[in-house]
Design a protein around this nucleic acid. Structure first.
Length: 708
DNA sequence: TGTATCGGACAGTCAAACGG
DNA sequence: CGTTTGACTGTCCGATACAT
């Protein structure tokens, strides 16, 4: 075509295609492609050369939808014994789905089921309203009668049920004006910067370029803020403060951290109630709820937090965050942020349920949301039509991507399902051939190291934390896997595996020490405090008690010592119970070694951590009234091989004094200041926080209760 | 009569599907 | 891995509407 040919400066160089100017395109008239062109010159308009639009992804499988429909009708005809000429003569009724596995159009495909699972896929019923439309005649998208009705029902629910928030966010009659709770404009910017520096690099649930706009609005005025924006802002304030140490908070804001936390958490809670978080379909609203929960992590009983986290997961499922939506349902930016939020929620839920000692039913092979893309926020723009290419090199999202990749692998492993959902074992990703030494996680380790970590710069704080936390987590997984294998084998078989678990525990501590001892991670400590390597401590202490002079004892003690000192566990002194128990565990193991060394006539040189523990314990005895006096050494846990500890839910690193706050009933005087209500007697909760290990037992035999 | 608007035919491009 | 298919983008003719 001549006009098309003229659109190129040369027929040989297609790259240099010259498009008609914007005005001519708009007017649908021939453009001479001089700039300014004749048309623009004539009409004295500004001649703007047009640019080529990025090509949209082609819609896939359109004909397959028709085939599916045809098969469905053929199936109905067969069911009713009606003669017909089938689409394919060679496809008898026994083989109705020759194209298995089916794609997302009409047939639910469970993500990566095992190859040995040959059950027939079940057609997905998208929703009741969709089913109604299918049944009563029209699959036509333009049949909006049913859709209208569905929306009407939704709107009616909005009007009828006005008090949804009171379920967990406290009873109240009127929305509270929250503008007095916002910080000063300068502090808003400071909190935003803290969030951007310390929180978002790890969570990546906030698209910085977009939310920056909200922040600027908030700086201008906090009076007429939309409820969802307000909730998001308060969640940003709360997590920003949460990421600071108490000393830094005091020096930067001139106020105690606890005081600011309670203030912004209360603001966030009220704002969430204002925007009806329990019935929301808004991603920003759920993001605010997630950040709100994050801000409670250190101070709330994990069992309570686990229940609330389940609510967030349910909201996310209602919003279909767990499904990777087909192209076109959401913009590229929105789809990516939905993926990031889903994975953040899943990993938070996993963490909380592990700490609470519960089985986790979220990190399962049954959801289809893929992991976030390894891209920078600036590469995700609202107007984008095509997904940006994921980088090989680390980006701003590296930490979130690596964690999600580990989670994605984990959810398909046999040992994860054995721990959490044995009934889903057929969906494990079983590889062919015998399992090599290292089990299901060798592949994961190779993938993570090769695909993500090898490009990380150890001097970049985000890369550093992504690298060493990934390695710590993989070591933890391998320890868990080892326990899972051990649980299935006889005691005689499992004895030889003891060394594997020791190796994984030592590796876990060594990687964790790399993290905790580094000055690079200062801004990210808040996140790392979530992950005290307690399983490794328990395993090593137990092994060191049984074999105080074994082959690995020296290395284990070096690892324990370095990790204990790196954590500077006295930091948690005010949450004394946990701290005391960890100290007593280590001390107990040392006493076994001391005795063994004396019997062997060897010289005794206690590791520095033992001296530090004795020093800390002597200080703590007068200070911490909550220490129930349970003795690791004398209560039968250390010495009594067979006894077990059923309740490992108390293995959290920090105290939980404020555990009812997320439910809208503050346990603090500070809450009363803001809410103008009488505080609940905090004393009621104090017993909940006791780490009464004396009454606990640990089942070392099979380990099925030791979920971490 | 001149000018602007816009439906729609047509051509080119290229990702997905196909087939050997 | 080359070929085919067809969804998508870009071009601009010509019918029509509207202003002068």
């Amino acid at each position: 075509m001549s006009s098309e040919q003229s659109a190129y400066t040369s027929s040989q160089t297609k790259q240099q295609r010259v498009l008609a100017c914007v005005l001519c395109q708009q007017r649908k008239v021939k453009c001479d492609r001089n700039f300014p062109c004749a048309n623009c010159t004539k009409s004295q308009a500004k001649c703007v050369p047009a640019t080529l639009l990025p090509r949209r992804r082609r819609r896939r499988f359109a004909e397959r939808e028709l085939l599916d429909q045809l098969r469905n009708y053929e199936h109905l005809l067969r069911q009713h014994n009606i003669d017909f000429e089938p689409l394919r003569k060679d496809s008898p009724s026994t083989k109705e789905s020759p194209d298995e596995p089916q794609d997302e159009h009409g047939v639910a495909e469970v993500s990566s089921p095992s190859s040995n699972l040959k059950s027939k896929p079940i057609p997905e019923v998208k929703s009741f309203w969709h089913a109604v439309r299918c049944r009563f005649g029209s699959d036509d998208e333009s049949d909006d009668y049913v859709d209208d009705f569905a929306q009407t029902v939704g709107r009616a629910m909005d009007k009828v049920y006005v008090n949804d928030g009171s379920l967990i966010l406290g009873l109240r009659q009127i929305p509270v004006d929250l503008s007095p709770l916002h910080p000063e404009p300068a502090q808003i910017l400071r909190l935003w910067q803290l969030f951007v520096d310390n929180v978002n690099p790890l969570l990546r649930v906030v698209h910085t370029p977009t939310v920056q706009g909200y922040v600027i609005e908030a700086v201008a005025s906090t009076k007429s803020m939309k409820p969802i924006t307000e909730a998001l802002m308060f969640s940003i304030y709360a997590t920003g403060i949460f990421s600071l140490s108490e000393e830094d908070c005091l020096s930067v804001f001139g106020t105690q951290k606890d005081e600011l936390m309670v203030k912004y958490q209360f603001g966030c809670q009220q704002a969430l109630a204002n925007c009806g978080v329990l019935r929301t379909s808004d991603r920003d609203c759920l993001t605010a709820f997630y950040l709100y929960l994050i801000s409670f992590n250190h101070t709330t009983d994990p069992r309570a937090l686990s229940s609330i986290s389940a609510i967030a997961i349910r909201i996310a499922q209602r919003m279909k965050l767990d499904k990777d939506s087909p192209d076109g349902d959401y913009s590229v930016l929105e789809a990516e942020m939905r993926r990031r939020l889903w994975w953040a929620l899943v990993l938070f839920d996993l963490h909380i349920s592990q700490v609470a000692g519960e089985k986790n039913k979220t990190l399962m092979p049954t959801f289809t949301c893929r992991i976030p893309l390894n891209v920078n926020d600036a590469e995700l723009r609202p107007e984008m039509k095509d997904e940006p290419l994921a980088h090989d090199q680390p980006t701003e999202a590296i930490y979130a991507v690596v964690r999600s990749a580990i989670g994605d692998h984990m959810r398909h492993t046999v040992f994860n399902l054995a721990y959490n959902a044995p009934e889903l074992a057929p969906f494990a990703r079983v590889r062919d051939g015998p399992s090599p030494e290292g089990g299901e996680l060798m592949e994961l380790e190779r993938l993570i190291e090769h695909k993500y970590l090898r490009f990380c710069n150890p001097e970049n704080p985000l890369h550093f934390v992504a690298t060493w936390e990934a390695r710590t987590n993989i070591a933890k997984c391998r320890l868990m896997e080892d326990y899972s294998i051990q649980a299935k084998s006889s005691p005689a078989d499992s004895y030889g595996r003891l060394d594997n678990a020791v190796v994984h525990s030592i590796r876990m501590l060594e990687c964790d020490t790399q993290l905790m001892a580094s000055p690079l991670i200062k801004g990210f400590r808040w996140m790392l405090y979530f992950n005290f390597p307690f399983p490794a401590y328990i395993h090593l202490v137990k092994c060191l008690e049984k074999s105080p002079r074994s082959e690995h004892a020296e290395r284990a003690w070096r690892a324990l010592n370095a990790n204990f000192l790196a954590w500077d566990i006295s930091h948690f002194h005010k949450n004394g119970t946990f701290f005391t128990q960890v100290c007593k565990m280590v001390l107990g193991a040392w006493s076994y070694r001391e005795t063994a060394l004396i019997q062997a006539g060897e010289m005794i040189v206690p590791p520095p951590c033992v001296g530090r523990i004795l020093e800390l314990l002597s200080i703590s005895q007068d200070v911490d009234p909550r220490d129930g006096g349970s003795d690791w050494m004398t209560d039968g846990v250390a010495g009594g091989g067979g006894e077990g500890m059923d309740d490992l839910y108390h293995m959290m690193p920090l105290g939980f004094e404020n555990n009812s706050f997320p439910l809208g009933q503050g346990g603090s005087d500070l809450y009363a200041d803001f809410a103008n209500v009488a505080p609940v007697d905090a004393g009621l909760d104090s017993n909940m926080n006791r780490l009464d290990w004396a009454a606990s037992t640990i089942d070392w035999g099979v380990g099925q209760r030791t979920t971490w």
